[in-house]
Computed example of a mutant assay.
Amino acid sequence: MRRILFLLIFGVAGLAILVSLGVWQVQRLAWKQGVLAEIESRISAEPVGLPDTISADAEKYLPVTITGDMEPGEIHVLVSVKQVGAGYRIIQSFSTAERTILVDRGFIPTTAKDAERRNGPMTIIGNLHWPDEIDSYTPEPDIDDNIWFARDVPNLAAALGAEPVLLIARSETDPGITPLPVDTAGIPNDHLQYAITWFGLALVWAAMTGYFLWRNRAPSESDAT
């Protein structure tokens, strides 16, 4: 009897923990969906002019319109696009009447690395962004071949003589460049999978608990007969 009681307490406690973890992930899923909806709403809002004072926290994803000159001189950031393959993001400095910032013009295939592209006067619609793409495994830029491996905004700004402000274009700036606008696809949202995993483990735990309780009760019942 003491053995059965121990198994029952152990089984119920484990089941409660697993179910609570599943419920927590469901709550996190609702929270993340709200965050993503807010970001998507901000991304797709009506573009405004470039603010005088720009903060990475306050202006992240802000849609803006800028008019000025695309300055010569490119930085190529190595990326891979689904169903297309490897290529580069084109990063350049862009000068308005008041300031010079960075513009991510979009994607080119590796074969177009040395092609000529349109610079000079233009108007661009895009979103301000400060991508978090640097970790301990990110290689240093290959300066000789002009290949970077992440959009490191402060270092890109230093290299191109611009403010550490990056506008990711969603309007076309050159026929040979495909814009890669900001979206929420790269923001991880795995809470549903985690919830399913925890609830699945809870079902397995409950089944195992029931099995062990049945095995420990079966001999005593047979002995009584």
Rank of each mutant, 00 (worst) to 15 (best):
H191F: 12
D174K: 04
V26D: 05
L201F: 02
R117Y: 01
A16K: 08
F6A: 14
E221R: 13
V165M: 02
V77D: 09
D142I: 11
N146D: 14
V77Y: 01
L15F: 09
V48W: 01
A195Y: 12
E163P: 03
W31Q: 13
A16C: 15
L7K: 15
P179L: 07
I39E: 08
I168S: 06
G106C: 10
I196Q: 07
V35N: 05
N119L: 05
G34H: 12
P131M: 03
Y137S: 15
A159G: 04
P139F: 09
D223V: 09
L201Q: 04
A202W: 00
T53L: 05
S222T: 13
D104R: 05
D114F: 06
I9F: 15
K82N: 11
D142E: 15
L78K: 14
A97T: 09
V35G: 10
G126N: 08
W205N: 07
P219C: 01
L62M: 00
I54C: 03
R105A: 07
M208A: 15
Y88E: 06
E140V: 15
H76T: 03
P164W: 03
I17K: 12
W205F: 05
A115Q: 08
A157V: 03
K113S: 01
G120R: 12
G22Y: 12
R28E: 05
I196C: 03
A218W: 10
I101N: 10
Q92P: 01
Q27R: 12
A150H: 04
L8C: 15
I4Y: 13
L213E: 10
L203H: 00
G161Q: 03
R28H: 02
A150V: 08
A37I: 07
A58H: 12
D114K: 13
P175S: 04
P164A: 01
T197D: 02
E133L: 00
E98M: 05
E221G: 03
V19P: 02
I9A: 14
A13Q: 06
L8F: 15
P164R: 00
E38S: 14
H129N: 06
I90S: 02
S80V: 11
T123M: 06
N127D: 05
Q193E: 14
A157G: 04
D57A: 11
L201G: 00
S80F: 07
I125G: 04
V35Q: 13
R215Q: 07
R105M: 07
S136T: 14
N155K: 15
L36G: 07
D183W: 01
W148E: 11
V81A: 12
F6S: 15
D144M: 13
L160V: 08
T209I: 09
D132E: 07
I54Y: 00
T209G: 11
S222L: 13
V103I: 11
M208T: 13
V77G: 08
A162V: 03
Q33R: 14
G106A: 02
N216D: 13
S171C: 08
F94W: 02
R28W: 06
P188Q: 13
A157C: 06
V23R: 04
L36N: 09
T178P: 02
L29N: 02
I90A: 02
W130R: 02
V35H: 10
E221H: 11
D132L: 07
